[in-house]
Design a protein around this nucleic acid. Sequence first.
DNA 1: TAAAAATACGAGCAACGACTCGTATTAGCA
DNA 2: TGCTAATACGAGTCGTTGCTCGTATTTTTA
Lengths: 205, 205
Amino acid sequence: MTEDTAKPVRKRQARGEKRMAELLDAAAEVFAEQGFAKASTNAIAARAGASPGTLYQFFKNKQELAEALMARYVERLEAAHGEAFAPQDPRLPLPHLVDRVLDPIIAFDRANPGFHALLADPGVTPELAEAKRPAQQLMFSSLEAIFLQRAPGIPPARLALTVTMTIHLFRGTLPLLIAAEEKDLPLTTMEVKRALIAYLAPLIG
Amino acid sequence: MTEDTAKPVRKRQARGEKRMAELLDAAAEVFAEQGFAKASTNAIAARAGASPGTLYQFFKNKQELAEALMARYVERLEAAHGEAFAPQDPRLPLPHLVDRVLDPIIAFDRANPGFHALLADPGVTPELAEAKRPAQQLMFSSLEAIFLQRAPGIPPARLALTVTMTIHLFRGTLPLLIAAEEKDLPLTTMEVKRALIAYLAPLIG
DNA sequence: TAAAAATACGAGCAACGACTCGTATTAGCA
DNA sequence: TGCTAATACGAGTCGTTGCTCGTATTTTTA
């Protein structure tokens, strides 16, 4: 009854790690440009300077490639937000709080257009939807903690609704933030913050 | 120098109009379920109870099918909003204005999930992007007119930014509004309106 | 009623894309 | 230095899909 099919335990070499990173970079680019469905794995491999066979040496299929990419984004997101989402002084004025949380997120999304492309892509299989969950979970619970800290008496349902709405409001403006020229960014950013502050002020102002 | 390649001038029969409508209905369903890229024209034809050949009798290719669907949505949108976007009494309280404009839009988007699916689809060719323009233009100019009426002295750049931001904020919440159960809809709707009112009050309150 | 035009069918083609597999090269390790 | 495993290649397979075309049926028109 021993499980022989357990795990082949491949030892990855440094070369392999590097190739994987190159393939993920290429995938991020092509997904951002064409969307998940239209992006071809052959094109991704070519963009990474690799052959199709090499791609499939590291990723079982196209889904897993996207999942791995998403997982890498989540890691980076956690690193980038670690401080921003850390416990704040509850008396920090709302505008300052919004600055502190939003600025790193905006910077991240502008630096990683593939992230939003993958997150927003609707033509996505259940498996990839699953892969997106950690990213969404991360944002949700981080916001939840901050809101709860500033409005301890808030009913759970109201809290959840507020968090969800905040995330969706922000996500709606993301295409603007991503597409903005560098020179227009401050104005656009300010306007997004204004909207969120106006919405949140009654609850956690 | 006569243009012989002008137009074949096919006379469409009532039967043909009906078939086109059926094909567009089917396309709306399949696009909504699978997204533009993954939806196969054969599947759309089959869903409409027609053969591939019949589909291509009425639509030159997949793009044109999507464009025709989008055009039909724009017509319906204009019909549905005609009154909502018509000139309002400038002294109408902002919450009432928001009710009047948003309620038909929300109803429309819930009744036509294919519309948002197509509008939000990122894996879309330039031609389809072109087809989306009238819909976006319609919303933009309608909102612009209303805002201008209520805040006549507003600078053009500020007006444009406000309109764009309003549209994107709302669009971000659309997935929530579309996915909401009937019983949750009033609460979600109220929250969306609260957000927009809070954002707009300083300018056109 | 007969010719013409519009509608309908569906087998099948050509292109493309995800993925495989036999083989060659490189790196770790005894 | 030899052995094993990891990495690399890319031509090729197989399924899918957008679309065509020869043909058959229904409707309009003269």
